[in-house]
Computed example of a mutant assay.
Amino acid sequence: MENPLTPEVLADPVKLTRALVDIESVSLDEKHIADCVEEVLRGVPHLSTYRHGNTVMARTELGRAQRVVLAGHLDTVPINNNFPSELRGDLLYGCGTSDMKSGVALALNLAVTVADPRYDVTYFFYEAEEIEARYNGLTLVSQAYPQWLEADFAVLLEPTHGVVEAGCQGTMRVVVSTTGARAHSARSWRGSNAIHAAGEVLRRLEGYEARRVEIDGCAYREGLNAVKIGGGVAGNVIPDRCEIEVNYRFAPDRTPEQAQEHLREVFAGYEMRVTDSAPGAAPGLTAAPAQEFLAAVGAAPVGKLGWTDVARFAAMGIPALNFGPGDPNLAHHADEHVELDKIRAGDAILRRWLSGV
């Protein structure tokens, strides 16, 4: 199959965004897009290119004093009547336009066109970010070839609408359970209704006051919310168990262990089990490349309120931030789109940063 990433397309980040969007790459089906990206990068003389699964990495070897990473995931969520792409005026519509093929296009365009950056650069295009962590290409490479990711600083090209979003919040899911005793509903006083008992858990959530934390000038607002509830046996049985699934988004000044301890205090007296947890990441703005990146952007950073793979970089001791042209509020939507001006502006910022001009 002919590679749609032609020299003409590669030279223009807008055209490149559209070409990438028109390569279907739902999670676990990234082989074709990885093949196309790998073929392009292996043809660039100033890069050394490697592949692991459907993750492709290319790097300069110029002997610079510092190394930076530009990273983006190749996969998308399932298509929702938004494939292939469609250009409407100054907006490009299609699955992955915002999250995050416009960001991938910026990195791939720079990889091909910038031969003499002021840092050594690692360009990292990875698989399976949108699904379970065990498939995530960044995680798999960090386990198999950690040397590929060694760097002083990383930019994750997640959608931020052209704003620097520093660090990220941690996330934790727990299940809080209430118990009772079964009985026939005609003789309900002989039992104890676990669903009714869940009312106190819900009242604690309703009255919860979430922390607001400022770290390195970046504000993080926590959140604690019920996201699912289940219980019941049959239409004529008093239920003896009810489970409330709760999601906690916590500021990066808390470890997962501290977050769990806090939740045990909130839900004291109830059974609670943790079903999922991921640490946050501090803003990471003190590294010299980060300061130089902020200077190139020319605007103050804000805290990332969601969770992103910057936390995986932070776990490896690499400060990282989020920056990309897409609007995060459009990620995963059927009408997902990206503004062409945001792609061009992001390209100008990254070029200014890498060139030092």
Rank of each mutant, 00 (worst) to 15 (best):
H262K: 15
A58V: 12
V121W: 06
A288R: 11
L138I: 07
E206R: 13
V14T: 11
T60R: 09
V266T: 13
W148Q: 01
G63Y: 10
G235C: 08
R273Q: 14
E150T: 11
A65G: 12
R204T: 01
E158K: 04
A226R: 06
V112P: 01
N82S: 02
G137E: 08
L74P: 06
H46D: 06
E243H: 07
M100W: 00
G306W: 02
A219C: 14
G94K: 05
A19P: 00
A107H: 04
H32M: 14
T178H: 05
A299M: 08
V237D: 04
S85T: 05
Q260C: 11
V274T: 15
E209G: 11
N54K: 07
G180E: 10
V112N: 00
A58M: 14
G170R: 00
S277N: 03
D99N: 12
P256D: 12
V175T: 12
R190I: 11
L87I: 14
V297A: 07
A219Q: 15
V114R: 07
P325R: 00
N247M: 13
G103D: 11
R352D: 08
E339I: 01
G137T: 07
A300Q: 12
E257L: 13
A334M: 09
A299E: 15
R344W: 02
E292A: 11
T171F: 03
V357W: 14
A296M: 11
G96E: 03
N81A: 14
I238Q: 00
E222A: 10
P159S: 10
D29S: 09
E339W: 03
P325H: 00
R241V: 12
A334H: 10
R42I: 00
I33D: 02
A71Q: 09
P239R: 00
A311E: 09
A334N: 05
A115K: 09
